[in-house]
Design a protein around this nucleic acid. Structure first.
Lengths: 160, 160
DNA sequence: TATTGTTATACTCTATAACTATA
DNA sequence: TATAGTTATAGAGTATAACAATA
């Protein structure tokens, strides 16, 4: 049963379009909640990871430090995050989610999760569980940390 | 067991980095075989799908017709494909894989598959099977045809 | 001198729009 | 007039490099 491994497309040829589809599905949801994709990535990182400075945030999401500045500006203007100087090191800007930032993030994510449930409903329950398990294993073993010079978690293109 | 669906990242946040990782893994292999990512996509499409004209090829891989011209030029110069006029409609360029094109594609794919096997080895056999099944279901239900204006199969980025 | 955040510049990739030759 | 292939232009997104403030 396992000896016929070639009757399928390459992994990248299946996973890349799938990623594209999932991102496309998130876009209208985020638009409805008035956050950009990068904004959502940042809000999620602030909500889930112990990130305090901009540099740490940039590293956590696999983006360049200069890349996230405009994003932070927008989020701050919407009162979704706060930026305040670290009294111990005045070069640093400490970051924090505001209450409405967490609320906004939570609302958007809830809707995204509902969308994902509908999407995953195509799969039989056992495969769905296994798929999610596999995804957690494969995506963490291979996160943005694999190549420090690699782009943001969501960017991917043919290249060369 | 199925009632705790939230202890994971969003699907896109797992699938997009995975796609990036898989593409990054393909790149050195393709470089060794002296084909570009787009070249490989084109060779694969010509080998697996009944595509004859450039327009049909472009549609098959979800790219703009102007996007693939440079790629075809390169492949033709390497004698990996042939372009010849259709006697029935002299506007059309018919496409065909050459013997060495098919050989090159096969060699590259074989190495990619070996790399994938090593990568998938992180998973228990049952999950691996289910993962591949799920991938085939989810990636086809949502291929490039979902949005005709969508980019190529392998491109994905935050956007907005 | 090194580092944080910022700004400005250049480059890659892609989409869009003209152009030709056939129909 | 419409279509296949081609070419040229413009735009989005990103990375890289310089800059000011602080350590």
């Amino acid at each position: 049963m396992t000896t016929t491994p070639d009757d399928r497309r390459d992994l990248a040829a299946m996973v890349a379009p799938l990623a594209r589809t999932l991102i496309a599905a998130e876009e209208p949801v985020l638009r409805a909640h008035e956050i950009s994709m990068w904004g959502y990535i940042v809000l999620t990182a602030l909500a889930t990871e112990p990130v305090r400075t901009q540099a740490a945030l940039a590293q956590a999401i696999g983006a360049d430090k200069s890349r996230i500045i405009g994003v932070l500006d927008e989020l701050q203007e919407q009162d979704l995050i706060e930026r305040y100087p670290d009294p111990a090191d005045r070069r640093v800007h400490l970051l924090a989610l505001t209450a409405s930032g967490e609320q906004r993030r939570r609302a958007a994510q809830a809707e995204i999760r509902r969308s994902e449930q509908r999407f995953l409903a195509r799969l039989p329950a056992a495969d769905r569980e296994a798929f999610l398990r596999a995804l957690q294993v494969l995506s963490t073993c291979a996160g943005p940390s694999a190549d420090p010079s690699a782009g943001p978690s969501h960017a991917a293109g043919p290249a060369s």
